[in-house]
Computed example of a mutant assay.
Amino acid sequence: MLMLTDLERVLPRLREHRIAGGRGIDWVSIESDLGTRLPSDFIELAEAYPRFSLDDFLSVHIPEPGGERFFTAGVRETLDELADLRDSGMSHEHVPYPEPGGLFPWGDSAEGDTFYWRTTGGHPDAWTILVSGHNDDWCAYQGTVTEYLAGLLAGTVSPDGLPPDFPREAPTLDFD
């Protein structure tokens, strides 16, 4: 498993914004509200950095300390949207978490793509990535969020279902 330092290596500007000592997110509250622990690489990323976007396109949903309930409300809203797609027969048989093997959102794009964890494999560190493209593409990646992001930026992960010009050679980095 790649670590946060691998993502920082391919996106060195990220390191300038790292918060020493962590951000103090109430993970117990989040886990209690959502009924699951989140993957450890995501927790590490969220403790080091606030919510950010790459190339004004891909936004990583990171909770704010003190705003954990807003984070969980956003997760629930996205899960409700996926349930509506499923109920309309438009989710390609993907189901929302907490259903077995359900999808759990971690990001979105400016063009309506949604980035999910596929909650199969038991422990959250075994969850993999599924991208729901706005053109009804569903593309899988067998790895973690940090592996996916680092691979996209390094060019070792294909941006399947995403615009062909993403990410740019020198991607922009914006914090909310």
Rank of each mutant, 00 (worst) to 15 (best):
G35D: 12
A48F: 03
N135V: 09
Y148K: 01
F52Y: 13
E64G: 07
V145A: 09
Q142H: 12
L152Q: 04
A126N: 14
A150K: 01
S29V: 07
L103E: 03
F52W: 13
G74I: 02
L103I: 11
P105I: 00
G121R: 07
I30P: 00
E81F: 08
L79A: 05
R51L: 12
P63Q: 07
F52R: 05
Y116G: 00
G121I: 07
W106G: 01
G155S: 08
S109K: 00
F71I: 07
G107R: 03
L130E: 09
E93N: 15
L162K: 03
W138E: 06
G74P: 00
L153R: 00
L85T: 04
L54P: 00
V75R: 01
T156H: 15
D84P: 01
T36D: 04
A154C: 11
L149E: 01
D125I: 05
F70A: 13
T78G: 01
S53P: 04
P63K: 06
L34V: 07
L38M: 12
P50A: 15
P159E: 08
E68Y: 11
P50H: 13
P63V: 07
P39D: 10
P65A: 12
E99F: 09
S109N: 06
F70N: 13
T36R: 14
A83Y: 09
E77H: 14
L82Q: 04
D56L: 15
S53W: 08
G121C: 08
T114Y: 05
